[in-house]
Amino acid sequence: MTVRNNPGAPSLDAILTPACRKWAGSSKSDNIFVEANMNKMAEAAARVFWALGIPTRLLVVMALAQEGEACVCHLVAMLGMRQALVSQHLMALRKAGLVVATRRGRYVYYRLRYPWIAGWIRRALRAHKMEWRRLPAPARQCPCPTCRTKPPAPMGR
């Protein structure tokens, strides 16, 4: 990590909490281990922000937050996008660790691994004086068994 090499930046000891300092130890090799973990955390955070940096992926995330769990055909019907496009974005969200897939029969259902991410997005919008509105119910019924058994979601907020 370049923090230690930058003369104006705080030292690693100033950044770490006392509990972390005790865990990290005082030897140079221990500090390198802590720095490597900090780099891994920064890389993981960058993957999350990269995944959420595309508007279509934000729509998919918010649709999953609204529905709780949905299959690709339901997301396609809800967002009005092509199946291939929705699937590609779901794959990127899965690689970033934000979405979990569960297979039931011939359908794959997706849900957010961390549902609080939707709250993050809402708070970021509120900070810019904007509000996320509820996505409308699917324009057409999707063919999955889950959609056939539950009543349609109400439109509006």
Rank of each mutant, 00 (worst) to 15 (best):
P10V: 13
L85Q: 11
L12M: 13
L93S: 01
I121N: 02
N31S: 10
V34F: 11
L16G: 07
L135I: 15
A24P: 08
K95G: 04
A124E: 10
K40S: 07
A77V: 05
T146N: 07
G97I: 10
A24F: 09
Y110S: 04
P138L: 09
L90T: 09
I32Q: 08
G25K: 13
L12G: 03
R47S: 12
R148Q: 15
A24H: 03
R123V: 00
N39W: 04
A42W: 08
C71A: 15
G25S: 14
A92V: 14
W132C: 06
R113I: 02
P7N: 01
H89M: 03
R4P: 02
G97F: 09
I117H: 00
G68L: 07
G80S: 04
G156F: 12
I32H: 03
R140P: 00
I32D: 06
A124K: 11
L12Q: 09
E131G: 02
F49G: 00
P152N: 05
S27H: 10
A127Y: 10
E131R: 14
A65L: 00
G53Q: 00
K22C: 03
E67L: 15
A63L: 10
G25R: 13
L98N: 02
N39S: 09
S11A: 11
S11E: 06
K28F: 05
V99W: 03
V61Y: 01
K22Y: 05
E35L: 14
